[in-house]
Design a protein around this nucleic acid. Sequence first.
DNA 1: GTGAAAGCGCTAACAC
DNA 2: GTGTTAGCGCTTTCAC
Lengths: 335, 335
Amino acid sequence: MTATMSDVARLAGVSIKTVSNVVNDYPHISVGTRERVLAAIAELGYVPNSTARSLRSGRSGVIGLAVPELSLAYFAQLADEVIRAARAQNMVVLVEQTGGERERELEVLRGPRLQLTDGLLFSPLGLGNGDAEVARVPYPLVLLGERIFDPGIDHVTMQNVEAAEAAVEHLLGLGRRRIVALGAHQGEVIGSAGLRLTGYRNALASAGIGVDEALVVEEGLWHRRNGADAMRRLLATGVQFDAVFALNDELALGALRVIQESGLRVPDDVAVIGFDDVDEGNYSIPSLSTVDPGRQEIAETAVDLLLTRIEGRAGPEKQQLRTGYRIVPRESTGV
Amino acid sequence: MTATMSDVARLAGVSIKTVSNVVNDYPHISVGTRERVLAAIAELGYVPNSTARSLRSGRSGVIGLAVPELSLAYFAQLADEVIRAARAQNMVVLVEQTGGERERELEVLRGPRLQLTDGLLFSPLGLGNGDAEVARVPYPLVLLGERIFDPGIDHVTMQNVEAAEAAVEHLLGLGRRRIVALGAHQGEVIGSAGLRLTGYRNALASAGIGVDEALVVEEGLWHRRNGADAMRRLLATGVQFDAVFALNDELALGALRVIQESGLRVPDDVAVIGFDDVDEGNYSIPSLSTVDPGRQEIAETAVDLLLTRIEGRAGPEKQQLRTGYRIVPRESTGV
DNA sequence: GTGAAAGCGCTAACAC
DNA sequence: GTGTTAGCGCTTTCAC
């Protein structure tokens, strides 16, 4: 069925090495030879076998991307950007879902499923800082996000603390003082939830406002459903508030819906800001203010860093890269 | 760095073939030998090299999935389901984005980027029925959706016509008569837009209602933004309508927003139904009625069919499989 | 039950 | 400039 290099060589009347040279654009080949080889390639419809090439070169041209799940808009858009960035570098992307569960994340790191990739972009959720050892794997690895923060591992992260601070300052700037933090993870310090909550506390502290723990609402998962549930629980307590900082957009969108069902007006009674800038926020009612965490920049930076490692360029010092962010004011905070 | 089979063989004092036998669970090995080999494997931390294995066996354990883009919720959720289904069969998924452009789709079909996959799940958008030839590729291919409908190619599709009919019947059942079709593709017959529009026309015809072409609104892309734009254009024409059948949920969500901005009430003045059942529809305001196209069933069926082809099981007759659908009534149609 | 050896398709020394 | 040759790490006849 498929023609091999020797088939081409035989037809062109040259050696297999010459074919290889032509295929790999080796510079010193006579024009005549090259043409005969190209003709033979065309005639046989020859396509290099990338598996054999991988075995030989030790590289597959594939990078792995492990995320909690693509159903979460943030990760879908991240995957989109990663695939684009990889494509620009002639790489292809194998996507794994971990469900955010620690066990599955460990499996991805150690298991055989990503064996034929050249390196891994990994966005952990279940793993914590104590798992730094586990993340010292014998292949190129770049972590996305701050669940595991270890100077011995490459990282690309958004500026969670600073960006969250800016989001809360945006609410404070509107005169809001009873600001809910939605989606907190009990006791977490490192990780998106912990860091964004730190930003929340910092902003309130800078404004000389004490944190009312009744306004810090826990929620493990960050789907719309969870935002809705958490908001229902909060409303049921009867506690008063005039703004919500949701730790991501999906939580915000779920909450937005429940707030308005309860008869409260957004932004008049309650201003709402999310985090992530998923496209949906442009079309919700009201449109959702949010933080643009620089997803595209994260993807491009991470792919570049991973390729640097794969190709063995750059020194051994691990990098901790941080991308920019930007507050995006929309109707839900009164614009 | 990495141990090979011969390293293991040397340490265990056996031949490389014996190691291979143990690794592949070949039945007839003496207990003692097996234990010595397993011990050596553990000691060296040996992991089989999957690239070499692929070269030998001709299979990589990777399937390709080509979709327009993951930023569209429908495709993100489809990719999620495909990865799950593949995982259940011990396969891993390489995701490519085509942007829905014909050129890029051709590139995916013929190009070298998916070379090391065992087969391809392909959701075309730019390719049309005239491209059936192109889709007769020398590797296992299963098409998702009906852009190219050729009995010589395996297909897994939703029941676009019937499901669209049911959606429009749902609106008719509410007493609506001036029903907009949003997102039509001029002249398209095969393809989601064409088929869903056929369902729309069928339902109206069955109800004895003529189609007012002023209510058939074109829109090439199916993002929220396009739904919003199209609805703005429609409102500007001043044409009257009491319901909208959007050809997908994202269009519906964009339109929902614009309709309400214009002062019309949903569902009182205008009932809206979409198509796809993306999670977001549960949390929009109002929540969005839609058609559940059986995404999970599509993913599982397609992965199974592709594996059947890869493994050479089943006869040569190509299959055209259709999955179930279900109307999901929510607030935007008055529930 | 286990071993020897060939070869999957390609690349990279090294000759000529 | 081009050919020869030796593997990359594994599976798989075929002997023993």
